[in-house]
Design a protein around this nucleic acid. Structure first.
Lengths: 110, 110
DNA sequence: CTATATGTATAGATATTCTATAGGAGGACG
DNA sequence: CGTCCTCCTATAGAATATCTATACATATAG
C-alpha cells in the first residue's frame, strides 16, 4: 500500500483482498483498482504489495487463481475465494472489530 | 504488543502511548498497564515493544522523560507529552479515523 | 513501428514488533 | 543477613509484511 498511513494497514491488506474477492472473482490489478476506487483513493495497493499478498493467500488456500483473459484481452490471473477463504474472512473481520473496539476505548479514555 | 491480532496494531502503538500520556505522566510500565487495563486485556504491550517505542517517541521530541520514584519506591522514568507530542497525537488521530473509515467502506461494499 | 497502457512478477531495503534475556534495587520473610 | 520475589528498565536477535524500484511481455493506439 502507500499514501501516508502506510503502516496502519499492516495485517489489514489480506482482509481487504479477501473481502473484495468475496464479491466477485477478479484479477490482481482488478483487486487493487477496486480497493482504490471504494476508498476514494485513500488506499493504493501497489503491485509490490499486491502480488506477494495474493501469492501468500493462495499458498494458504484462501483464494484460488486461474488464468484467463482480462476485459482488455490481456493474459490475467483471476482469483476467487475458496470456502476456507470465506471462513478466514470471517475470522479476520471479528479480529478487526475487536482491535478497533480496543483502540477506541483507549482513545476515548479520560 | 501481543495477543493474537499482533500485526493489526502496526503503527498504532505510538498513538496509544501518546494518548495515554496525554492524560497524565506515567513511567514505562505504567503506560503498559494502563493500556492493558483500559482494553480489558486485549492489548498487552510487552517490554520489548514498549521501551523501543518510548525511546523512539522521545527521540522525535514528542515525549520527555525524567527520572523519579514510582509508587513502589523504585527508580522509574516518568514520561510526559510535549506540545509537539500533542500536535502529533492530533495528526495520528485524524489519520487513524481516515483509515478506519476507508476500511469500513471496503468491508461494507456490496 | 513506436509509444503507451495493461498485467504480472521479483529483488532489496526498511522498520516495527516479537521473543527472550538481562540486571539492578526495594521489600518481605525466615 | 541472606534469599527470593516483584518492579522497572533495557537490549539483542529474529521474524515478517510492506515499500520502492525495476523488469518484462503483450495488446492497442497513433
Amino acid at each position: 500500500m502507500a499514501e501516508a498511513k502506510t503502516d496502519l494497514l499492516r495485517g489489514t491488506l489480506d482482509m481487504l483482498i479477501l473481502k473484495t474477492l468475496s464479491l466477485q472473482p477478479l484479477h490482481g490489478l482488478g483487486v487493487s483498482q477496486r480497493i482504490q476506487q471504494v476508498t476514494g483513493g485513500v488506499f493504493q495497493v501497489k503491485p509490490g504489495s499486491l502480488f506477494p499478498a495474493l501469492h501468500r493467500l493462495e499458498q494458504e488456500g484462501w483464494i484460488e487463481g486461474s488464468w484467463g483473459e482480462s476485459a482488455n484481452n490481456r493474459r490475467a490471473k483471476y482469483y476467487r475465494l475458496t470456502s476456507a477463504g470465506r471462513r478466514r474472512l470471517g475470522e479476520e473481520k471479528r479480529n478487526w472489530a475487536q482491535v478497533v473496539l480496543a483502540i477506541t476505548k483507549v482513545m476515548e479514555a479520560t
